[in-house]
Design a binder for these strands. Structure first.
Lengths: 205, 205
DNA sequence: TAAATAAGTGCAACAACTCAACTTTTGAAT
DNA sequence: ATTCAAAAGTTGAGTTGTTGCACTTATTTA
């Protein structure tokens, strides 16, 4: 997802880290930003690695120390996202159901911007129109589904490969997608998760 | 799937084609066979395109005229398989239900060999242990699911994106997988499809 | 038999990615 | 404060998948 250069981001990892880690994160961000900008300007396939490295003022080897393959430049929040997703389930406030926690997470994640977010739409369009990115994203989505399913299984004391957990994970990740483009995305998400919550509650209180 | 060099294969395309097409198919097969052999011997990543081309006695250019990317060398029956799958549904004998036709197809496809087929197991193992192949295969499976879902929708006069059709397609493709390694695979498949058939019949005769 | 089409070749090149040796920070222990 | 080891970055050369181009050879069709 697009990460704007300015703007007060919620600072997801609120650890007062040293200069080293900050610099590392900075170069990583510089690379990802340069890459996304160029990709949006001229298309994924028309931009080479060297060009991106130049734009970010780094060597190509450095680039590959941060991103294992070209596609990862686009989905650079992959790991963060998965981490936050699992945390939303594992560290949910006491008395909150799993679907409720997932709804909360879906609503606060910036995948659901009330007004049609240009940057997000452009990003989704880039992915949808580039086969390599479509495939990569699809597999990434599958990985997240599996990880979430396992987390849910652990939280609810079910077997790790319980189909119900996988189904819930699947729907929970699908809901925000479906909501995008909807007149009132937040309402769509809320009602979708209401549905999931009732179904889930009927199975295992 | 492995296609042995000798052995009387059922000759899937029973059209008396000209010499040109036969030669083309022959080189294609030579390439795929060489590739699979080398991959099984030394691992996917340890074998280069140039080496495969040499082993099949063709130029790398020719190789890429037959297979668009390296991974396709392994899943070389991709298109044929999908074609047969869709044909099984579309050209099923009158009075046969869709799930029944799919069961028939599943039982006759050589994915279900009664005795533990060494070559098939080796193949599946190769795919499972090679990330690039795992990913590629996963996406291929998804494509087949979509195609089958559309075919089912057309056959049963439902909307093209009907979730029920997609679910049936999903299960129908999953069943053979699940049956693999089962003590009696054919029985497992049969009973799985019995289940699907009853559920399907209960929805739309 | 001649023209048209398709398969295959050889070679050079590009782009993604890796490797090894080396320099410059930075964090921390003495 | 000084020293030292690890981490981040650079440089440059190499490997590998993949493509483009100009060309030959075989098969089909007219």
């Amino acid at each position: 997802m697009p990460s704007s250069t300015p703007g007060p981001a919620p600072d997801t990892t609120a650890a007062p880290v040293g200069r080293r880690e900050r610099k590392k994160a900075a170069t990583r961000k510089a690379i990802a930003d340069a890459a996304l900008r160029l990709f949006l300007e001229r298309g994924y396939d028309a931009v080479g690695i060297r060009e991106i490295a130049d734009a970010a003022d780094v060597s190509t080897t450095t680039l590959f120390k941060h991103f294992p393959v070209k596609e990862a430049l686009v989905f650079d929040e992959d790991d963060d996202q998965e981490e936050r997703l699992l945390a939303a389930v594992r560290e949910r406030p006491a008395g909150t159901s799993v679907p409720a926690a997932l709804r909360e997470h879906a609503l606060t994640s910036r995948l659901v911007t009330p007004n049609g977010d240009d940057r997000l739409t452009a990003f989704l369009n880039l992915v949808a129109t580039t086969p390599a990115l479509r495939d990569y994203g699809q597999n990434m989505w599958l990985r997240h589904t599996t990880a979430l399913a396992h987390a849910i299984a652990e939280e609810s004391g079910r077997p790790a490969d319980d189909p119900t957990c996988r189904a819930l994970a699947h729907f929970a990740l699908e809901a925000p997608r479906a909501a995008h483009g909807h007149p009132d995305p937040r309402a769509a998400i809320t009602s979708a998760f209401d549905l999931l919550e009732r179904g889930w509650g009927a199975l295992a209180g």
